[in-house]
Design a protein around this nucleic acid. Sequence first.
DNA 1: TTTAAAGTTGCGTCGTTTACTAATGTATTG
DNA 2: CAATACATTAGTAAACGACGCAACTTTAAA
Lengths: 138, 138
Amino acid sequence: MRLPLKTEYACQVLAQLALTYSSGEVRQVEDLASAEGLSPNYSVQILTALRQAGIVISRRGKNGGYLLAKHPDEITLADIAIAMEGGSVIESSPGNGGMSAANVHSAWVRVSEAMLESCREIKLSELVADTDDADWVI
Amino acid sequence: MRLPLKTEYACQVLAQLALTYSSGEVRQVEDLASAEGLSPNYSVQILTALRQAGIVISRRGKNGGYLLAKHPDEITLADIAIAMEGGSVIESSPGNGGMSAANVHSAWVRVSEAMLESCREIKLSELVADTDDADWVI
DNA sequence: TTTAAAGTTGCGTCGTTTACTAATGTATTG
DNA sequence: CAATACATTAGTAAACGACGCAACTTTAAA
């Protein structure tokens, strides 16, 4: 069960935005993408999903870009995961008509809820990297 | 993030085996598969993985079949998930060289561990369906 | 008011993974 | 040794993921 790259990328881009949140600065796609080692083209799609989920605000036109819609303390991994993927973080099939299908399904739903709860406990502010002297450049 | 069908099927087949655990009865693939609405051929592959993980014991030849290697109380969703998928239940990529990649990764590792813990709390015995008057047949 | 810098949208594509099917091999029992 | 049931491997079709590209729209600034 692989965590989609798209979700990870979303976290990285948001961490990048959180870095300059207090300055109110607008960040451009090119800037965000290169800081996180992502393709600008793909980053756009991620930022679009985040905007539609109300996590990010965009400004169009010249000198446009993106900024966080909320304080980094008020954005959690759960918000991000739900924005990128569908409703539930883990989805299991409702049943194939087998004798134990319903029981199995409801067990995994419980697991999914537990995981979602643990996602709610991790805030975006915990993801932002130390700014001073970074050797994270490749 | 979809729970692989293979993992769900494994749970169903094991629930079926748990149903007759106390009788010590050996169940054949055909039997297990039809009770859970699965293809026999595919079920074999699932059962093979479960055997290699030490969750199930097989007997070959005439009157062969499968039975649980342990008591249904001592098999958890964590055991099953790990048997079917790799080491960790949720795997996130270690990093792409981005500035926040490491932080993001470690956050998801924490989530993954929390989820694994919650999988450890659900036992196979909770998955077995009520035997009396079932209308689960399709 | 023009212009160019930015975001927006949708389509296309390529590679991988998943969920199977099928065929063939191997062990066990009567 | 023959019938039966598990074991293994190969193959495949469809779905999904991770992008790239191009045309369009918006807006600040010259």
